[in-house]
Structures are given as structure tokens and as C-alpha cells.
């Protein structure tokens, strides 16, 4: 199944695929941001692979790490084939300034809340999302808490004790 997915993507979208890696038996394919929507559409329409289930969307912030040079943010699409019981990941790197990518809501309705959460927590804009509003945090919150430069102890609304500088916490 791994070769099948790899072959399907390479033969149809060769120019858009940056690299491929397998870690602990899990296949991840890095693609260019503009390729996401067409690739997902063709995966969804393709009968031979049976990739119909979008399991999850999440994001990683690589601030201060060597991988930041590919783009600070990484958006991870967790796709699953119910037919062949096979899971793989599409990964996209986005730049630090104004990270944005196509929304998958036209393909999967379930992407709606997942993308809202990624926007809320990591600040990645999904173009074409019908209702891109905060979902877990209050409407008037500033910043995106899961970014690495957002302090763990920073509270909003700010209390007097951390008004100027959030206290350091060591794990």
C-alpha cells in the first residue's frame, strides 16, 4: 500500500512533491502548499486507493529548530483508507509570515472544526473556510497559544502579576 500511494502521487503530481519519509513504519509525504487541494481531491475521487477518511488536521511550530528553514509551520493531514486500513500523512511547510493554505472543507465537512482549531491555536489561515473563527479560546483573545513564542504562563486578560513579563517556568 505504501508503494501504491507513493506511485500514485509521484506519477500524477511529481512536480509538487518535495520529499517522502518513513519513520516508525509511518509514511509522510511533504508536498508544496498549492498542491494540497488538487492532491486531496484526486485521492478522494480515486477508487483504487480508497482514501476517503480525513482523520485529523494538526500543525507543528518549528521555531528555533533546523527545520525552520523549510518554513516555520508544518500542517499535518492525517488520511486513512477504510478499505485497505492504511494511514499516511501529507505534510505542508508554511512560512512564518502570513501562513495560509487552501481549506479542505469543500471536500470534507469534518475539516471545518479541525481547521478552526488549527487557526485558533496556531494562527494558520485556511482560504475558503466558511466560518474561520476561534473555537476553543474567547473571541477577543490576542495571539495563538500553541506557537512556540507564546509563553505558557501568559494569561489573558492579564493579571497584574504578569502584566509586564510572564514568569519563567521550568518543566
Amino acid at each position: 500500500m505504501r508503494e501504491k500511494v507513493s506511485k500514485f502521487l509521484h506519477s500524477n503530481f511529481g512536480d509538487w512533491i518535495i520529499s517522502e519519509e518513513t519513520f516508525r513504519d509511518q509514511q509522510s509525504i511533504f508536498i508544496k502548499p498549492e498542491a494540497l487541494s488538487p492532491i486531496c481531491r484526486s485521492l478522494l475521487e480515486d477508487e483504487t486507493l480508497g482514501i476517503r477518511f480525513l482523520s485529523d488536521i494538526t500543525s507543528v511550530d518549528w521555531l528555533g529548530h533546523a527545520r525552520e528553514k523549510d518554513g516555520r509551520f508544518e500542517v499535518v493531514y492525517n488520511l486513512y483508507s477504510l478499505k485497505y486500513k492504511y494511514r499516511f500523512f501529507l505534510k505542508v511547510h508554511l512560512p512564518a509570515d502570513n501562513p495560509q493554505i487552501d481549506s479542505l472543507t469543500p471536500l470534507w465537512e469534518g475539516a471545518n472544526w479541525m481547521e478552526r482549531e488549527v487557526w485558533d491555536m496556531m494562527g494558520i489561515t485556511f482560504i475558503g473556510h466558511p466560518d474561520l473563527t476561534r473555537i476553543l479560546n474567547p473571541e477577543d483573545m490576542e495571539g495563538h497559544p500553541l506557537r512556540r513564542d507564546y509563553s505558557l504562563t501568559w494569561e489573558q486578560p492579564q493579571f497584574t502579576w504578569n502584566k509586564d513579563r510572564p514568569p519563567e517556568i521550568k518543566g
Binding site: 482523520s55 485529523d56 494538526t58 500543525s59 507543528v60 529548530h65 508544518e74 492525517n78 500553541l146
Partner: peptide, 20 residues
Amino acid sequence: ELGFYISSDGSNKPNRVRVR
């Protein structure tokens, strides 16, 4: 399906823990 996506940067703390 409860999923844990753990992204490690090689240090002793996870870079990202995502709970599905």
C-alpha cells in the same frame, strides 16, 4: 478514535503533542 500525534525535535520534551 483517540489519537496522539507526537512530534519530537530530538530534545527531552515533545515539540508538539496533538490529541485527536
